[in-house]
Computed example of a mutant assay.
Amino acid sequence: MQTQKSYEKTETGMLYLVPTPIGNLEDMTFRAIRMLKEADLIAAEDTRNTQKLLNHFEIQTSQISFHEHNSNERTPKLIERMIAGETIAQVSDAGMPSISDPGVDLVKAAIEAGIAVVPLPGANAALPALIASGISPQPFYFHGFLPRKKKDLHTELETLNKRQETIIFYESPHRLKALLEQIEKVMGPDRKIVLARELTKRYEEFIRGTVSEVSEWAQAEQIRGEFCVILEGNAHPILDQEIAEWQNWSVKEHVEKLMESDGLNSKQAIKEVSILREQPKRDIYSEYHEI
């Protein structure tokens, strides 16, 4: 067990986790600017990118590169410097350190060494996209980037399809269409989804609709910019133990049983069955009415 009082004076230095703007420099906080000025060293994901930020705010603190390819080598050295009394500010290229960015290994090592780790609030893509999506903001599940390989992506989406919370993804422009195709295949066409593109930047855009509508939009567009994807949770997740209950029923039997047990009319029951079976409502309607 460990207790940290962030602002008590200690013999060691401290690690500050400093968020940086994701596109709009006005989102840099006064406190973040002050901490970058007061730190003895800035550990930056890309020193060239961070230097532009430092120049804009007239910050002269020295930098050292710290990213996923050199974190094993750099982490012990940074810990030594903080044990010796130096204060280090860690930044990623944009947004919160450690969230789909380098930083978590340094945080763990600092905690193990008894060094105070102090997070600053600030810019990130996930929460602004969530609160402007129009989809229920809580509870939510942040997933970040999905697997690149198609088979792994499909498997991961099948697992996520059991979650009732709103789900947040990050996605790059060249993979967005494939992601939407897989979401429609695994989770169905009617789930609500929002694409938040280029948040805080000049071309910020929100695309809201069902999975099928947004997928159709993506196929017709030349996709540019980084995306935060907000996906409605599954209101009726199929748990493994529940599958056997209805998998041998016909669609007509399934609809009728829901009408009887839940007091639904046929339209409502057809909608519920389409969600449970992950099939379009029109197909369930046709089979129920034997069209």
Results as ranks from 00 to 15, higher is better:
residue 2 Q to P: 04
residue 2 Q to Y: 13
residue 3 T to M: 14
residue 3 T to S: 15
residue 7 Y to G: 09
residue 8 E to N: 08
residue 10 T to P: 08
residue 10 T to Q: 15
residue 11 E to H: 12
residue 15 L to C: 08
residue 16 Y to I: 01
residue 16 Y to H: 02
residue 21 P to K: 08
residue 21 P to A: 12
residue 22 I to E: 00
residue 22 I to W: 01
residue 23 G to P: 05
residue 24 N to A: 11
residue 24 N to G: 10
residue 26 E to V: 06
residue 36 L to W: 00
residue 37 K to D: 00
residue 38 E to A: 01
residue 39 A to M: 03
residue 40 D to L: 05
residue 40 D to H: 09
residue 41 L to F: 10
residue 44 A to R: 00
residue 44 A to S: 13
residue 45 E to A: 02
residue 47 T to V: 05
residue 52 K to G: 02
residue 52 K to F: 13
residue 52 K to W: 08
residue 53 L to E: 02
residue 53 L to H: 06
residue 54 L to M: 12
residue 55 N to Y: 12
residue 55 N to H: 14
residue 56 H to N: 13
residue 57 F to G: 01
residue 57 F to A: 02
residue 58 E to A: 14
residue 58 E to P: 01
residue 61 T to I: 09
residue 66 F to M: 07
residue 68 E to R: 09
residue 70 N to A: 08
residue 71 S to P: 02
residue 73 E to A: 12
residue 74 R to N: 06
residue 86 E to A: 14
residue 86 E to C: 10
residue 92 S to V: 04
residue 93 D to H: 05
residue 97 P to I: 03
residue 97 P to V: 06
residue 100 S to P: 06
residue 105 D to F: 07
residue 109 A to L: 13
residue 112 E to I: 10
residue 115 I to C: 04
residue 115 I to E: 02
residue 115 I to Y: 04
residue 118 V to I: 15
residue 118 V to R: 02
residue 118 V to D: 04
residue 119 P to T: 14
residue 124 N to A: 13
residue 127 L to W: 04
residue 129 A to E: 00
residue 131 I to S: 11
residue 132 A to S: 13
residue 133 S to C: 06
residue 135 I to E: 00
residue 137 P to F: 11
residue 137 P to C: 10
residue 138 Q to L: 11
residue 138 Q to D: 12
residue 139 P to Q: 12
residue 139 P to R: 09
residue 139 P to Y: 07
residue 144 G to A: 10
residue 146 L to T: 03
residue 147 P to K: 08
residue 152 D to Q: 15
residue 153 L to W: 07
residue 154 H to P: 03
residue 155 T to P: 00
residue 159 T to F: 09
residue 165 E to A: 13
residue 167 I to A: 02
residue 168 I to C: 03
residue 173 P to F: 05
residue 174 H to T: 07
residue 175 R to Y: 08
residue 175 R to V: 09
residue 176 L to F: 05
residue 176 L to K: 00
residue 177 K to Q: 12
residue 178 A to F: 03
residue 180 L to H: 04
residue 181 E to K: 13
residue 186 V to G: 06
residue 186 V to E: 14
residue 190 D to C: 05
residue 192 K to A: 12
residue 196 A to R: 01
residue 197 R to K: 14
residue 197 R to Q: 13
residue 198 E to R: 06
residue 200 T to F: 12
residue 200 T to D: 13
residue 201 K to D: 07
residue 202 R to N: 13
residue 204 E to L: 08
residue 205 E to P: 06
residue 208 R to Y: 08
residue 212 S to G: 05
residue 217 W to C: 05
residue 220 A to F: 11
residue 220 A to R: 15
residue 221 E to L: 09
residue 221 E to G: 03
residue 226 E to Y: 04
residue 228 C to V: 14
residue 229 V to D: 02
residue 229 V to Y: 00
residue 230 I to L: 05
residue 232 E to C: 02
residue 235 A to T: 12
residue 236 H to N: 14
residue 237 P to T: 13
residue 237 P to E: 08
residue 239 L to T: 13
residue 240 D to K: 15
residue 245 E to I: 14
residue 249 W to D: 06
residue 258 L to H: 04
residue 259 M to R: 12
residue 259 M to Y: 05
residue 259 M to P: 04
residue 260 E to F: 09
residue 262 D to S: 11
residue 264 L to R: 07
residue 267 K to E: 11
residue 268 Q to C: 07
residue 269 A to P: 04
residue 269 A to F: 01
residue 271 K to R: 14
residue 275 I to N: 00
residue 276 L to T: 07
residue 276 L to I: 14
residue 281 K to I: 10
residue 282 R to K: 15
residue 282 R to P: 00
residue 283 D to K: 10
residue 285 Y to H: 10
residue 286 S to N: 15
